[in-house]
Amino acid sequence: MIKTQRAAYVQKRLAELYPNPPIPLDHKDPYTLLVAVLLSAQCTDVRVNQITPSLFAVADNPADMQKVPVEEIQEIIRPCGLSPMKSKGISGLSKIIMDEHGGEVPADMAALEKLPGVGHKTASVVMSQAFGVPAFPVDTHIHRLAQRWGLSSGKNVTETEKDLKRLFPKETWNDLHLQIIYYGREHCSARGCDGTVCEICQTVYPDRKRAKKTKKA
């Protein structure tokens, strides 16, 4: 298969497996999604979903959250890891949303990326999942699968994102990002597949005999 054929197969198979991929982080609006995505850095979605009910019981909007002491936020989110940095980010972005955006999470990539604790990937997730704007958030897991499937030879997540955006129609980006995540968790994990085990890896590279080494993001 050439790259475009691999991409077409991957997209078709993922759509069959996950026709309506749900958003994995529990939330009720753009603000609670933003906070949940921030917490998910180097933490599982399952753990985040266990912690956010306690956090949102204290404050589930920027007006209330900006009044909560950083130390209290940190104590609640400690199980998510990186709590000193994440608690400062949640407090800081809440203040900025109130002061500069009228209490509403901005539906603008550049504005989101200026918020404390919010990088390009987090902003992309919010644009995609909260506002329905086409985006292709790439984390280390999507980076790994894109390399295993021969869809990108990018040296980092930034290059991989550009490659994937060129390969797939814009209107499919939001679902495809989630579909790859679910497939990676269930069938093509870091330890569960080495590029030769899962259905998609075997189909797009039927003659591959050795493990596929991927470039670290």
Results as ranks from 00 to 15, higher is better:
2 I>S: 12
5 Q>P: 00
6 R>Y: 05
7 A>L: 07
14 L>F: 07
17 L>Y: 04
20 N>Y: 00
21 P>D: 06
22 P>N: 09
24 P>V: 04
25 L>H: 02
31 Y>N: 07
33 L>E: 08
34 L>P: 09
35 V>F: 06
36 A>F: 09
36 A>L: 07
42 Q>K: 11
42 Q>A: 12
44 T>S: 15
44 T>D: 14
46 V>F: 14
48 V>Q: 06
52 T>V: 14
52 T>M: 04
54 S>L: 15
56 F>D: 05
57 A>D: 09
61 N>E: 08
61 N>L: 09
61 N>S: 12
63 A>Y: 10
67 K>L: 15
68 V>M: 12
69 P>F: 13
71 E>P: 11
73 I>Y: 11
75 E>H: 15
78 R>N: 15
78 R>P: 10
78 R>K: 15
81 G>P: 10
83 S>I: 06
84 P>K: 13
84 P>R: 13
86 K>I: 04
86 K>F: 05
89 G>N: 11
90 I>K: 05
90 I>D: 02
93 L>G: 07
94 S>C: 12
97 I>L: 14
97 I>Q: 06
100 E>S: 15
106 P>E: 07
107 A>Y: 01
110 A>W: 07
112 L>C: 09
113 E>F: 09
115 L>H: 08
117 G>W: 01
119 G>R: 10
120 H>E: 11
120 H>L: 14
122 T>Y: 07
123 A>Y: 04
125 V>W: 03
127 M>E: 08
128 S>I: 07
130 A>Y: 06
130 A>C: 14
131 F>R: 03
137 P>K: 07
137 P>W: 02
138 V>S: 04
139 D>E: 13
140 T>W: 04
141 H>V: 04
141 H>T: 00
142 I>H: 00
142 I>A: 00
142 I>G: 01
143 H>G: 03
146 A>Y: 00
148 R>Y: 08
149 W>A: 10
151 L>F: 08
152 S>V: 03
154 G>Y: 07
155 K>L: 13
157 V>P: 06
157 V>I: 15
158 T>Q: 14
159 E>F: 04
160 T>F: 04
161 E>I: 01
163 D>V: 09
165 K>E: 05
166 R>N: 10
167 L>T: 01
168 F>M: 01
173 W>Q: 03
173 W>M: 02
174 N>D: 05
175 D>H: 12
176 L>D: 01
177 H>K: 02
178 L>R: 14
179 Q>V: 05
185 R>V: 06
186 E>Q: 14
188 C>R: 00
190 A>V: 00
190 A>N: 00
192 G>C: 03
195 G>D: 02
196 T>G: 05
196 T>D: 02
199 E>Q: 12
202 Q>S: 13
202 Q>F: 04
203 T>M: 13
204 V>Y: 02
205 Y>K: 08
207 D>T: 11
213 K>N: 14
213 K>Q: 14
214 T>W: 12
